[in-house]
Amino acid sequence: MKFVPTAVSGAFVVEVEARSDDRGMFARTFDAQTFAAQGLVPVYPQCNVSQNHKRGTLRGIHYQAEPRPEIKLVRATRGRVFDVAVDLRPDSPSYLKWASVELDAISHNAFYIPAGCAHGFLTLEDDCELFYQMSETYVPELARGVRWDDPAFSIAWPFTPSIINERDAALESYSQETNL
């Protein structure tokens, strides 16, 4: 595996090193010792799947607040998405910056998103599925979110989403005081 730094401090694109032959392909997508050696969290007590039927579906931008912020390792198991992490850590050198990666089922890459960062994605084609490994279990009262089009971040989405659920569409703009 190769860990490629992004514009968000502590966020990495995780690229697999595939080996192919006449049978097909094999690649290691996760190894706890390799992640620990990189200084990344090697244990994920919760895993989630997000299935999305239509191109243009936006989910996010979500995070879990203190005292149980989540680290996420996200990968596309079907389809292709524009995946985004936004740094909401006031003491971070990349505070309010964002990083994106195109995740797809063919390259088997993943996005490691550190605690204190919010996450969202936009589907680039129909029939997408994402698999999340989470460092914390979900705590509903700590769930938070910010607007996908918040001018505080100025995320360069590839196109305007066509499907956003009511909850995500109603999220407010970021404010350090109200989003902790």
Rank of each mutant, 00 (worst) to 15 (best):
D104E: 03
V74I: 14
I61D: 01
D31R: 06
Y95Q: 06
I61C: 11
V49M: 13
I61S: 11
V74F: 11
V101P: 02
V81H: 08
A27K: 11
L88I: 01
N52W: 01
R75H: 11
F30M: 06
D31I: 00
S50W: 06
K54H: 15
T77Q: 13
F35L: 11
A32S: 14
A32M: 05
H62C: 04
A105R: 08
F26I: 14
H53Y: 13
L73E: 08
G39E: 10
A36K: 12
F26W: 10
G60M: 03
Y95D: 07
V86D: 00
Q64S: 02
T57R: 03
Q38N: 09
P67N: 11
Y44D: 04
N109E: 14
Q38R: 13
L103T: 08
N52R: 09
F30Y: 10
H53M: 12
I106M: 05
G79H: 08
E102C: 09
A65M: 02
A76Y: 07
S100M: 10
G79C: 11
T77M: 14
Y95L: 05
Q46N: 11
A27F: 12
K72S: 06
I71Q: 07
V43H: 15
N109Y: 09
A85K: 02
Y95N: 03
L103A: 05
L73T: 04
S100L: 00
L73R: 01
T34V: 15
F35N: 04
A37N: 12
E102N: 06
A36M: 09
F111K: 01
A85T: 10
A115E: 09
Q33E: 15
R80H: 12
I71F: 02
Q33T: 10
V43L: 12
P45N: 03
I113R: 06
E70A: 06
R68K: 15
E102R: 00
T57P: 10
E70R: 04
P69N: 04
A99K: 07
G56I: 10
D91C: 00
S100N: 12
S107K: 12
G60L: 01
E102K: 00
L58T: 08
Q51I: 13
